[in-house]
Design a binder for these strands. Sequence first.
RNA 1: GGUCCGGUAGUUCAAUUUGGUUAGAGCACCGCCCUGUCACGGCGGAAGUUGCGGGUUCGAGUCCCGUCCGGACCGCCA
Length: 439
Amino acid sequence: MPLVGAAELSAMPEGSRVRLHGMVQRIRRLGWGAFVVLRRHDGLVQCVLESGRTPEALEKLREEQAVALEGTLAPAVIKDVSINPRDRELKVESVEFLCTPTEPVQVDLTKKILDLHTDTNLDLRPLSLRHPVERARLRIAEAIAGGFRDFLSSRGFTEIHTPKICFAGAEGGANIFKVQYFDREAFLAQSPQFYKQMAVAFYERVFEVGPVFRAEPHQTSRHINEYTSLDFEMGFIESHEDVMAMEIHLLRQVIETLSAKRGYELDLLGAKLPPPPDSIPSVTLDEAHEIASSASGRDFTGEPDLEPEEERLVCRHSAELWGSDFVFVTHFPTSKRPFYTMDDPAAPGKTRSFDLLFRGLEVTTGSQRINEYEAQVEKMRAFGLDPASFESYLMAHRAGLPPHGGLAIGLERLTARILDIENVRLATMFPRDAKRLTP
RNA sequence: GGUCCGGUAGUUCAAUUUGGUUAGAGCACCGCCCUGUCACGGCGGAAGUUGCGGGUUCGAGUCCCGUCCGGACCGCCA
């Protein structure tokens, strides 16, 4: 029998014979038999075993067994929101045991909440991800990435895959992982930045969903050392505002995708999606400092960057006064942005750059890039960098690049804020941080 | 890199303040009961080198020293 999803099960008539395989999420034994919740690819199905019909199977049944259940579909009214579908159950007539665990699972997967410390949860990730809540979170991340792909593909962007083992880093000052590459030293990519820019000359619009690596020894709830970057780069723009406008449309579609395709997971997680934005308020960094200062009484004015505290204050201001969970901050100073960022001719010392803040956290960084060769070389020198060590990158500039810009979204951060998850590690399947290399 | 906090059954916690009988409880696990449950219910059982090492004491989960592991915040950074 072909794999049927939860929606298809709902649509099947009463009495349909089906064979469902899955893993035993939980067993509720009662005197007459048991309710068995079967974990499947896209939901949990309630199954009914009667001791009069399958006594031996009932005896052998354990949590986390892989089984194939055969029986008939019956209508049901199920209150439990973790079950999907909730209007059908399987009256089981036969059970095939495919695999039985050799020891009881170390964590309690049967309860509504997986009551574990973050650290224990991550140590036991192969087990904790079997809990409906944990796996639902990652299905949201998956759908965000899917919405990102679908939207950009429909707007003429080409999906690319750039190398993660590189000769040099893109971000200069930030720490970078070194790896042994045969008889040479190489680095793990901090960003697909250089390759995206080169690709603008031959594809005009490109995007990539892929891992990036940061060797910074942070120990915070919003940093991990390997994360998934949603990157795009587009040619023939007039300024960074074209990039911001594209992101607004992108976010709109991502949110619509989530609400259309992940209703079950969002319900289960109690997530509140932001309304799909038509527009997003935008303030300059100086204005953001003023907002944060007047909201807190502290003086942030003149700081070159936003503190985490300010990100929260500016977001609160945006939500309360402008009704938006999103807010752009633009015009970061030249010194705080990478060397490929274009300066704003209208604002000396400032760049055509932006961050997107969402529910108190920075989730995107973007800008217009320098596309003229001479200007790029000049800024490298001003940053104390040797243009000779960027030869293959500058090859593209010498051969001519259209005006262009782009952005990068941190997938785990966006997911965490949408789902109100405290720690980005829990929006990651197998996070890597300064202390964690396994599982 | 700095400051602070923590480590007790598989797991989440209690007992540490004031050292004192056999370190308790919920969930999971094992056994029994329950004819429609709603991440059930009832009864019983098993489960611990209190991170590790040393010290003080008649007596240490509790106090002291060392060590290992982890967490939070700050710095720095998307």
